[in-house]
Design a protein around this nucleic acid. Structure first.
Lengths: 342, 342
DNA sequence: TGTCGGCGCTAAAACCTTTTAGCACGACGG
DNA sequence: CCGTCGTGCTAAAAGGTTTTAGCGCCGACA
């Protein structure tokens, strides 16, 4: 609506004071000794004119822009880890910050370009996120620009927010055991390659460690392990169909993610097996599709939103942070039942 | 890495010229008459020092920040229209702009606050997006700040990018007809309420008009219409199950979105019906789950990414724009077959 | 008597850039 | 020889804010 932005000088003029005085008053500087009356005049003038400080101009002087950068490979533009940005946006909003978003597709040149672009705009800090918890090679940032890794790791920046996968893995196993499954449990999606592959994901190794640890603690073993490289429904379908045809003693599936479980459901249906009567299923992520399935899929959720929040809290707070693990919620739906013969 | 940012003054000093000269040369001002040699010295100095202009400072002078705002209800943080931001981000990157993202959850106060925050940062323009093509009540913006509506409409801003729903609706019907379906077609999800409800969606009405128009042109009618208010898988399941139990003459389903179709698949499976042998299905959106289903769901896609791109092109271009309709692609998978008795 | 600090405020510098106005000098036309 | 113009460049202003340094006066303290 307003033709022209109202500036601090306008406020000062109307209050009959200098811009300095207006600035001090509006910023509530504690050591100032301006009169009560001056305070009132300035505040009144600011209110009447609808004054809003020009953050860009302020940033020039103070080197603080109340703006943070969020750079990721594809967090914003794919649906798999959208919770990360959601949490980050919320936390930023609460802290009266605003976020500049850049996507790099995982390409180093685009990443470098994005970082430079953010720095040119004087961001107060940057969070680096990845969709599948990779190690990231982040270039050094100018002094005074903090960074935190979100669902990612970097040797350069110690501040890191990750899902707490080890207990998550244990919880999944426990869910099955608590329902009475002591045998006939198959693992879908684990692959030794993935376990070793740093590039794929830092966290999957921990998830697997948790799973194996809990199984060992209970004195149990898997009746089968299907190694799969890619974790889309198609792969889950293929592997599960193959498995269930080969062996009839499988009573429960521990899937490495919900999309695999999605495919597993399809394979089970194909063979006339009902979940959870004939086959129990548990998995990881709490992907949106987990709720679409019937019966609803019980899964160990990736706490993306909480992680996103935490990352910007860390970024904006001043405590020097290390690796922080966010607990994974177990979200119980209806895909686990007591074992039954078939 | 660099301790301190290198400034234009540094470059000028090293080149032995004034900052004015350096500025002119680096910005390639055409009317200048600085010597060839000066050009070389300045460029050399800039390269050696790794100079990058401070966009914030420049913006102060030029009132251009190479930054645009993207404010939506929940486009970024839900998975339904993520393509919008993806396209916007890409187009912005190509134009060397960067985007400030804000989510309002559809709450007017948060929206007002978000707009103010963006304006405080001197954005060059704002795109307003919604996830379900609503009418939006956008407050006036200061003169010189353009806005475009993306998958949304506003009486205040004529520039609008929407999916071209009418032909989309027609295409869906044609897909069925071309496969030989002339009878036994049921419509899932249409509700007269929705058709009239401005708040729900501007575009759905056009989709329905396209569907009805094409049916009429072919001289066909629906064998049944299931009115549904909410379009989640659960609702599609319930409605379809009910419908298929009631009537045995249904051979094809035209679902208003992919999630309804998702539920329809489940209902069909429940009744032992195979897609597409016993039942053909076509729907709208090209949601990610459409590819997960087996057989793959044939659907009329929402061209979110193209729309997002277009919106920022419009915003950055100077052509005064009106309503722009982006064509909806038909993505053929395997859910449509010839009709067969059951 | 001299110094110091408090008071209430402001001028000016600083942040970094772009833009405007103009300077000194030589060439050129008349 | 005078005025004008072109050349190659620079000083200064402008953009909007915060911060630093200080002004002029008075009372208190040594």
């Amino acid at each position: 609506m307003p033709r022209k932005r109202v500036t601090l000088a306008d406020v000062a003029r109307r209050a009959g004071l200098s811009t300095t005085a207006a600035s001090m008053i509006l910023n509530g500087r504690p050591d100032t000794r301006l009169s009560k009356e001056a305070h009132e005049r300035v505040h009144a003038a600011a209110a009447e004119l609808g004054y809003r400080p020009n953050v860009a101009a302020r940033g020039l002087r103070t080197a603080k822009t109340l703006t943070i950068g969020f750079v990721s490979d594809t967090v914003t533009t794919t649906r798999f880890a959208g919770g990360l940005i959601k949490g980050a946006l919320e936390a930023a909003e609460e802290a009266r910050h605003v976020v500049l978003v850049a996507e790099t597709g995982g390409e180093p040149e685009r990443e470098a370009e994005a970082i430079a672009a953010l720095l040119d705009r004087q961001v107060d800090g940057i969070v680096f996120a990845t969709v599948r918890a990779r190690e990231l090679f982040v270039p050094a940032l100018p002094e005074g620009v903090p960074a935190v890794m979100l669902n990612a790791t970097s040797s350069r920046f110690p501040a890191t927010v990750l899902p707490d996968e080890e207990p998550g893995g244990r919880a999944a196993v426990r869910l099955l055991v608590d329902a009475g499954h002591f045998e006939g449990i198959a693992l879908i999606g684990q692959s030794d390659t993935a376990e070793r592959d740093v590039f794929r994901s830092r966290t999957i190794a921990r998830r697997v460690a948790g799973i194996r640890g809990e199984m060992a603690d209970k004195g149990l073993g898997f009746v089968a392990e299907e190694s799969i490289w890619m974790w889309e429904p198609q792969h889950g379908y293929d592997a599960t169909l193959d498995l269930l045809r080969r062996r009839t003693d499988v009573r429960a599936l521990l899937c490495m993610n919900d999309r695999l479980a999605f495919g597993a459901y399809q394979a089970a249906a194909e063979l006339g097996l009902r979940v959870p009567d004939d086959l129990s299923v548990v998995s990881f992520d709490d992907d949106e599709v987990a709720a679409y399935l019937r019966p609803g899929l019980t899964t160990i959720g990736l706490p993306h939103e909480a992680m996103g929040r935490r990352a910007v809290e860390l970024l904006l707070g001043r405590e020097p942070a290390g690796e922080e693990l966010t607990p994974m919620p177990v979200v119980e739906r209806a895909s686990i039942g007591p074992p039954r013969g078939r």
